[in-house]
Design a protein around this nucleic acid. Structure first.
Length: 424
RNA sequence: GGAGACGUGGCCGAGUGGCUUAAGGCGGCGGCUUGCUAAGCCGUUGUACGUUUUGGCGUACCGUAGGUUCGAAUCCUACCGUCUCCGCCA
């Protein structure tokens, strides 16, 4: 959510930012409601002040056993007018709030202006292309022959897009999750959390999934819960409504969770194998930072995610999202993409975003300056560190051998245990 | 799932319709004292919104949302949460 005061005082700047994000917003309606709200507050507060003054007189007279019926009649009338104005204020504020929840975050000044994903600049490339002289197999062919997963049976159990991992495939999936969690905890000083995989409407609203993207999520109407599309939701809401002492910042969490996405409207795209799923596993990084250094923290966050890919020896590139490709809540975002040799294409495995105070305002997440002074909104950031399905794809395809086996990188040794690194 | 108890500031805790501008204590902050030492004394204390001549002024907030009343922390209703006991359960 944007600050209504910013919208009021820097209207042109806000309009330009939203336009760069390629979103249509009726700011005139917002400003009109804002004015109406302030008018009604000014009016009702005068009345409430009057009522408080007269009520005190009533109390004094009653104590002195004097008659107060004239004053009581007077305040009765004031009270009725207050009730009408209170209702009006409630209504206007509800309308205004509803509109404000629809407004996306503004892009940061350093985010390149552009309308389409094809304009996203590549800002970094790492690693060397895996080009052996035998014919490369896809992860599906490898998984099939090695018995790592069973898509037909996953479909039988739940439906397409719900993967069933089997044997060493299940072991490898678990190994990757544990490897990434340990890496971020031990090398990057994140605190591990294991959150609920459902969240309520309030939490979904904090991070920006609601109200706009309700149809993208799995709902449990009986209990008014949603399956989380990312651990960002429960983890960011850990500090919802809290005031954090400045000296505790930055707070860094990493969390494994299963993620659930309906992927409505994307049928037909990437339906094969692991490229797009309704349920997948992800290790997520979430930071709560001081507003002054959130952009430094974004660079570090991205670096933390890159470290995982480098430790696994996988070729990747980093792209920076242009304003029009930025997600609803983000002010700036990097995507990390892995090269999948069998698929012969780049696969997005991580998005690292700074939301500035957008989520913090929706969730009332604030910090108290150490030197005293006003409580202020902090900045939230998050990034995948990273999502497993496409990581698994790139890993299997990059480490495949001429005989159809897969020789995994040494860093996974402690995690594969008796299954070993050579899948054959 | 059933029965009961409870929800007040950073924390403890008083308050059952107006003397509350939420007592008192703890903690925090500032100052004084440095001859009573494991201290004492004085002052201060949250959040949001509106307004502002930037000094302030005003309004709201006692789990949440409504309601009754001239007036609600206090009375009523619903919901949420916590605790205890019973049932069920990995």
């Amino acid at each position: 959510m944007l600050d209504i005061q910013t919208i009021r005082e820097k209207t042109d700047l806000v309009k330009q930012g939203i336009q760069n994000k390629n979103v249509q917003i009726d700011f005139e309606a917002i400003l009109k409601l804002d004015q109406a709200r302030r008018d009604v507050i000014a009016e009702v507060e005068v009345l409430k002040h009057d009522r408080n003054v007269v009520s005190k007189d009533v109390a004094t007279r009653k104590r002195n056993k004097e008659d107060a019926s004239d004053l009581i009649n007077k305040t009765r009338e004031i009270g009725q007018r207050i009730k009408v104005l209170d209702d009006k204020q409630r209504e206007v504020e509800a309308q205004l709030h509803e509109l404000l929840l629809q407004v996306p975050n503004l892009p940061h000044a350093t985010t390149p202006v552009g309308m389409e994903a094809s304009e996203n600049p590549v800002v970094k490339e790492w690693g060397t292309r895996y080009q052996p002289d035998f014919k490369l197999l896809t992860h599906l062919e490898l998984g099939d022959s090695l018995g790592l997963f069973d898509f037909p049976r996953g479909t039988k159990i739940a439906g397409p897009g719900f993967p069933l991992y089997t044997g060493h495939g299940a072991k490898l999936e678990r190994a990757l999750i544990n490897f990434m969690l340990d890496f971020h905890v031990d090398k990057h000083a994140y605190t591990e959390v294991l959150p609920p995989v459902v969240s309520n409407a309030k939490s979904m609203s904090t991070t920006g999934q609601l109200p706009k993207f309700e149809d993208d999520m799995y709902k449990i109407p009986q209990d008014e819960l949603y399956l989380i599309p990312t651990a960002e939701v429960p983890v960011t809401n850990i500090h919802q409504g809290e005031i954090i002492p400045e000296e505790n910042l930055p707070i860094r969490y990493c969390a494994y969770s299963a993620c659930f996405r309906r992927e409505a409207g994307s049928y037909g795209k990437d339906t094969r194998g692991f490229l797009r799923l309704h349920q997948f596993n992800k290790v997520e990084l979430v930071k709560f930072t001081h507003p002054d250094n959130s952009y430094d923290e974004l660079e570090k966050l991205r670096r933390d995610a890159e470290d995982i890919l480098e430790a696994l020896g996988l070729e990747y590139r980093v792209i920076e999202l242009v304003t029009g490709d930025l997600s609803f809540a983000a002010a700036k975002c990097y995507d990390l993409e892995l090269w999948a040799p069998g698929e012969a294409r780049w696969l997005e495995v991580s998005s690292c975003s700074n939301f500035e105070d957008f989520q913090a305002r929706r969730g009332a997440i604030r910090y108290k300056p150490g030197a005293g002074g006003k409580v202020q909104l902090l900045h939230t950031l998050n990034g995948s560190g990273v999502a497993t399905p496409r990581l698994l794809v790139a890993l299997l395809e990059t480490y495949q051998q001429a005989d159809g086996s897969v020789l995994l990188p040494d860093v996974l040794g402690p995690y594969m245990g008796s299954a070993g690194l050579h899948l054959k």
